[in-house]
Write a protein that binds this DNA or RNA. Structure first.
Lengths: 134, 134
DNA sequence: TGTGCAACCTGTAGCGGCTACAGGATCAAG
DNA sequence: CTTGATCCTGTAGCCGCTACAGGTTGCACA
């Protein structure tokens, strides 16, 4: 039996965040002591760590909730879990492509500022691109 | 002279977003007609497009505000603009590295689900990693 | 047994960057 | 003169937390 402070320390998840997960229904509400304090058991801790791991992997909270549900409900069926992970993987790959474009655009802007000029070419470029066509 | 709808169409920025930028002080408040409607001139439109371009480049709103300020205030000095862009570029590169790690982790999880199994290995892996050490 | 402080509780508000209303005023065309 | 598009303000919601305020417990030590 752990207090919220203890599961926080053991999971690396902020106390406020744990309560937040509970409020949002990501985690089931744990038992309470007579005075109303949350009391977590080993399974509660495992679930919290699972959610934390999902978040570390970049899954949304609703994905984390769904995956935890699948993991808990005996099933553990790839049929449902894999597409969630695959979709997230696809999103990550897509995001990386976007960032790569951004990086190149930023590089060319920063490179434009090689020699010190009173009229910053970078700012000029941003203005140019946004010049009035019509 | 453009209405807010016209600058929205010409800049590709949502009407509500334009008003939001004004509220947040990113853009200066434009003139108004007698009846209180916003009236934008060419410069207003240029500024809006500049901000939009900054946002497209992934700059934060406060960066966009700062860059616009530098671009407007005659100065256009690289000395102030370049570090902002460089810092953002660094952040983008860092973010890409994070995403690359994520992508590999997700790939190995998804790959674990090659052969159909009733006990999804992916979910097992997430649980494993979050197993109770102490 | 008192006392002091750490840890807990609930509820609410804030962050960034929008988006989406509600409920009203105004404009321009038919 | 009516209709419908466009505009106005103000407020609330989204995500995933984080940070309070203001109150109750639990526990160690004198």
């Amino acid at each position: 039996m752990y207090s919220i402070g203890q599961v926080s320390a053991r999971s690396g998840v902020n106390i406020e965040t744990i309560r937040y997960y509970e409020r949002k229904g990501i985690l089931p509400a744990p038992a309470r002591t007579q005075s109303g304090r949350r009391q977590y058991d080993r399974d509660d801790l495992s679930r919290l760590r699972f959610v934390r791991k999902c978040r570390d992997l970049g899954f949304s909270m609703s994905d984390a909730k769904a995956l935890l549900g699948l993991a808990i409900s005996g099933g553990m069926n790839c049929g449902e879990a894999k597409p969630i992970a695959q979709a997230h993987l696809d999103a990550v790959v897509k995001k990386m492509a976007e960032l790569a474009r951004l990086r190149e655009a930023l590089r060319s802007l920063v490179d434009a500022c090689r020699e010190p000029s009173s009229e910053c070419p970078m700012l000029g470029l941003i203005f140019e691109v946004s010049d009035i066509p019509a």
